[in-house]
Design a binder for these strands. Structure first.
Lengths: 192, 192
DNA sequence: TTGTGTGAATCCCTTCACAGCG
DNA sequence: CGCTGTGAAGGGATTCACACAA
């Protein structure tokens, strides 16, 4: 939703307007925002500029996050080329793959490294996030390796529930599950 | 989680075991399953085979879902090549793109079609799902076109909130948002 | 005895409603 | 006035606890 808030010096937006954009309710927007402080003006709404800046800080987008990409397959390359990535403060600082044919190839400025180097790369480059774009069978091992190296968060595309220590946030993107959610809803709706 | 349940004729699994795998609680598993009927055996647990079959039906996985892929870019190709896709009952029946250079190319057996044909393709092939792997600027238009053609569900990779009629399920996969969720959690944790 | 299925208690999130500030 | 911020109410989901079936 952030991307829809332009820099319009002085312009304000009401919780009602934000709610419409985000498919939610005005009360919900106000409650959520109030959770982080009260930066709206009564009778006016929220200053667009201030709102953007505050949310940037709350979401940690006021800094650059060094990311290591694990898996130089199709998903990996789709992510790597995704323009919003860098634009939003996520910088790919290393690419790792286990396939000997891919190791040594260059993607942009980066040379694909062997998986064996993952741990040392994370440490040396002070990477905070890893993106796991690897087969399910390899994901747990890579996750453990990353945690050992001191990673702060994991974005996991492999269709497995990773077992990681408490306190290491994991976000899962499971394409098949998304489709299953759709087929469930369709099936469900057609039975009523 | 389904993929972790093997065919082991006669073997049973307890809510406790399922809970561990799914990072949840035994009570949660029992409540969820009981919502669809009571197919566990007291003192034993759930028959793995029966559980799998029942869930397949509940999730609508006992049928093949014809899918149209819109956008033959990197994300599109990653999805198209994803082996679990077909294995789980999702069959790509058409590929559509707006780039004249891509139209006419073959991916496997399928020829990439122009976007103009989307509506007729959905109708002719009785597609139930569309996958939107297109830029944000094109997504809303494609969604509307798909809805007009009678689509049943949308898997949206574009970073926009699609406006679709009630009753058409939409699942969103927003890669940047997933990363933002991670950086938020990390930022949050480091402030306590 | 083991582990399900389920009411009851609890928690959390959403919605309501309105006091109060600009 | 208009719209935020927030207690209070409401509702849905999670957790507890236990009767009961195998």
């Amino acid at each position: 939703m952030l991307e829809s808030i332009q820099d319009d010096g002085g312009v304000t937006v009401s919780s009602e307007q934000l709610a419409r954009r985000g498919h939610t309710t005005a009360a919900q927007v106000r409650k959520d925002l109030s959770h982080f402080g009260s930066f709206g003006k009564r009778g006016l709404g929220y200053s667009v500029d201030e709102l953007r800046d505050r949310l940037r800080i709350i979401l940690g987008l006021d800094q650059v996050w060094p990311v290591v990409l694990v898996g130089a397959g199709r998903i990996g390359s789709a992510l790597f080329e995704y323009p919003d990535f860098k634009r939003r403060g996520y910088e790919c600082v290393a690419i790792v793959d286990s396939n000997p044919e891919k190791i040594g190839r260059k993607w942009g400025e980066l040379v694909i490294q062997p998986t064996a180097k993952l741990e040392s790369l994370i440490k040396e480059l002070c990477a905070t996030l890893v993106i796991l774009a690897v087969p399910a069978s390899a994901a747990q091992l890579v996750a453990e390796c990353s945690v050992n190296a001191g990673i702060n968060g994991i974005l996991n595309f492999a269709p497995v529930q990773l077992q990681v220590p408490d306190g290491i946030p994991v976000e899962n993107v499971n394409l098949v599950m998304e489709l299953e959610a759709l087929s469930f809803q369709i099936t469900r709706a057609s039975k009523t």
